[in-house]
Design a protein around this nucleic acid. Structure first.
Lengths: 247, 247
DNA sequence: GGCCCCTTAATTGTCCGACAATCATACTAT
DNA sequence: ATAGTATGATTGTCGGACAATTAAGGGGCC
């Protein structure tokens, strides 16, 4: 241990206000859906200026701990949804120059296990959602955008059926990055669309049959196919992933 | 397609300013380390008030896209670090009442594969870091806090050695949640500390020997042990994870 | 020439006050 | 009961202000 002193850190007021409110949200004193006091009220309670409160609110808003329902003024406490948090993670990965290979490798790791879990634990509702995703892709994959959207929807539906809420959230940033990369190349690998549809059907069939091993192996095949797609289209797997769109 | 109209959404100024700056960061016009213009300058460029700029800056700061070096005024563009982004994800998971079982299950999925990759791709430096983590745990695991810190450090070191930068970032929120939960129970499962140390040594040895299969299986054992720890200490695996500390 | 101290300018954090636009609510008229 | 209206509350934005701290020169000293 060093005997040196740590530098004193004076947190500015807006950060202390934000932390105080965040703490109340995290310890459930303020719950999902609860309306936040008005800005003037908060300013009075913290004994700071409204401007300071507003800066704190922007911080919380950006952390998705508070939000505003559309067309309303009052802020309410909100639990962050997967896609919102995923955006941040996706940006972080892209800014750290993560490569397509790294993203793909992680999906190769995650998705087969996810499919396996889904085969074991899918409910009628989640299974129906997977079916809807497969049908959605089959019905519309003409444009690159629609096709990529369908691919992502399928992965999301399978993860949702896995009975593990960590998996969708873990997977989401990868989907964002994969989607951005896939949209660029899907038109360059002609057989891709058909192979994707076929793999989706096989995974779905296996999950419906509660056949975990087959679900796993077909999902593995499905993910591996994306690598082939990248190779066929002449993309170097070690190029950084394109950054997903800004907020 | 529906013929109904989308609701017009008027983004407030502070959000448009934040998005504009974020876009410049994501497209690399502004790069890591670049100083941001001063608030007054930004206000002039966007033709808005300084208060509006400040609210936008708070948003970017909260997204970890800009930061300030300690003891300095000027904001600089920064690429978000793993731990910073992980905090957000951890909060989101905790607020969504994710259970210990779900976190543990995901780690059981992730960590063995991570260890396997580390055995294949560890460099002298990353290997040394794992060794240091193992020794650090061995040297100091008296308090619950130190022990849990050592556990997390080990996982981090292995993930860093995996040669895949997505893995540390994916793993980090799980570590935060596991750490919060583990700190509560580690003293209730007496044999845990010794078993942890032993497993770390085995994984390390396997990675040093480039034995991917053994690294995987010992890491799997290591992770499984945490489940036993929870069971022994009488914690229901289906209780929600405790929320990690606020910012 | 290079280095250190001091003065000065620039910048941030915070405050105050103000006002238009919008939303929420109570009230009124049909 | 419904629609329309008036009233108050709240947010988004603006302008200006000031203390505290940091960045930038400038001059003197070795």
């Amino acid at each position: 241990m060093s005997t040196a002193f740590e530098p004193l850190s004076f947190e500015p007021g807006y950060r202390r206000v934000a932390s105080a409110i965040a703490a109340r949200i995290l310890d459930r004193t303020l719950r999902d859906g609860d309306p936040l006091p008005s800005e003037v009220e908060l300013a009075a309670q913290f004994a700071v200026n409204r401007s300071t409160v507003r800066e704190a609110l922007r911080e919380l808003e950006s952390s998705n701990l508070v939000a505003r329902r559309r067309g309303t003024k009052r802020m309410v406490v909100s639990r962050p949804a997967a896609t919102q948090v995923a955006g941040r993670v996706g940006h972080a990965l892209a800014l750290n120059d993560v490569t397509v290979r790294e993203v793909w490798e992680t999906m190769e790791l995650l998705e087969p296990a996810t499919a396996e879990a889904a085969a074991r634990r899918a409910t009628p509702e989640t299974l129906a959602a997977i079916r809807a995703a497969v049908e959605g892709y089959a019905a519309d994959h003409a444009t690159a955008h629609a096709a990529v959207g369908g691919v992502a929807a399928f992965f999301r539906a399978v993860a949702a059926a896995s009975g593990n809420r960590v998996l969708p959230l873990t997977q989401e940033p990868l989907l964002m990055l994969l989607a951005a990369a896939l949209e660029v190349i899907i038109d360059r690998a002609p057989p891709a669309r058909a192979r994707i549809g076929a793999a989706q059907r096989q995974v779905l069939a296996a999950i419906e049959a509660r056949d975990a091993a087959t679900a796993r192996s077909w999902m593995a095949k499905h993910v591996r196919d994306f690598r082939r797609g990248f190779e066929i289209s002449g993309i170097d797997l070690d190029t950084p992933v394109p950054a997903p769109a800004a907020d």
